[in-house]
């Protein structure tokens, strides 16, 4: 049974196929309106999330399928102490596919190992979030037309930002990619990710200064400094406003810069940037739904 826990579970060819189907869904939505008739998606969300859960549910409804939903861990059997593996076995009896978000890293892998239906990781702690990466990739593909020879800036929380780690991992497979890592010292990209980049011969620079590197960037991926990833409230309050993107900071940026953000935004992108044609983060949300539709079709082996 095929599951997607990590973006690396998908080959470059498979990602290209998922993008091609997503593009076809965008062009011909009616063609896909009944592809999942009679199928059920179980969204098991053991951690607060609005947009990812709604995106999965909207994706399944637009394919003609139905949704079974757990959106509050306190009202599920997990609050009684049921293990992830038991939950996966039980839900396999009711649904055709699972989308799982869990605060514990590795929980979706445990679910996939025990379920008899495909499991999609919808975010596990600070670890992986492959469908956000698929949304990011479709947006880059639609805005730039290619993935190679891009200079990609990541700004904000690069330590705990699971979307950053997943996108770096996905883009590392393309030639001519260069990463610019913009963060305070406390939120730098983990050493093992940088070691992997070095071993793959991928160029990257680290800086604390967003303005200085702005003219070099083809893509700017902004992230939120997430309070729930910190053990220490003081550290969070000190660092949360570290990098705020404003129209003034964009004056030296390329005319075709693509600004991405996995959302939700707190204040790291000024709302004044929203009207800039280079702001692509709301398109990214819509693209996420199309990529989730495409992924569901792939994992359910629906033609």
């Amino acid at each position: 049974m095929r599951s997607v826990i990590d973006i690396k579970d998908l080959s470059i060819k498979e990602i290209e196929e998922i993008i091609a189907v997503a593009e076809d869904i965008i062009a011909n939505p009616q063609k896909y309106a009944h592809k999942c008739d009679g199928k059920k998606l179980a969204t098991l969300f053991f951690e607060p999330s609005t947009r990812t859960r709604l995106s999965f549910e909207a994706a399944m409804y637009e394919l003609g399928g139905n949704v079974l939903s757990v959106s509050d861990a306190n009202t599920s059997s997990a609050s009684k102490g049921e293990s992830v593996s038991d939950t996966a076995k039980v839900v396999s009896c009711y649904a055709d596919i699972i989308a799982m978000r869990h605060p514990k890293e590795g929980a979706p892998l445990v679910a996939a190992t025990n379920a008899s239906i495909p499991v999609i990781n919808a975010g596990d702690g600070g670890h992986n979030h492959p469908t956000q990466t698929l949304a990011d990739l479709l947006t880059i593909h639609r805005e730039k037309g290619h993935f190679d020879n891009l200079t990609v800036g990541f700004c904000g929380d690069l330590k705990f930002g699971r979307t950053v780690h997943s996108l770096i991992s996905a883009l590392s497979r393309y030639s001519g990619i260069k990463f610019v890592l913009i963060s305070p010292d406390e939120l730098k990209l983990p050493g093992y990710v940088k070691t992997n980049l070095s071993e793959m011969g991928i160029e990257f620079v680290e800086t604390k200064d967003l303005v200085e590197v702005m003219p070099d960037l083809d893509i700017l991926y902004m992230t939120r400094v997430q309070g729930e990833r910190f053990f220490n409230e003081e550290d969070y309050l000190r660092l949360k406003d570290s990098y705020i993107l404003t129209p003034e900071k964009l004056t030296t940026a390329k005319y075709d810069l693509c600004i991405l953000h996995p959302l939700p935004r707190v204040n790291e992108i000024s709302v004044a940037v929203d009207d800039d044609p280079r702001a692509c983060y709301f398109k990214q949300v819509l693209n996420g739904k199309y990529m989730r539709m495409s992924l569901i079709l792939k994992l359910l082996e629906v033609d």
Binding site: V84, K104, G106, V110
Partner: peptide
């Protein structure tokens, strides 16, 4: 030793 790892809460794993 990662406190966020699933093995810390599901100790039979």
């Amino acid at each position: 030793k990662n406190p966020r790892c699933i093995t810390t809460t599901e100790q039979e794993l």
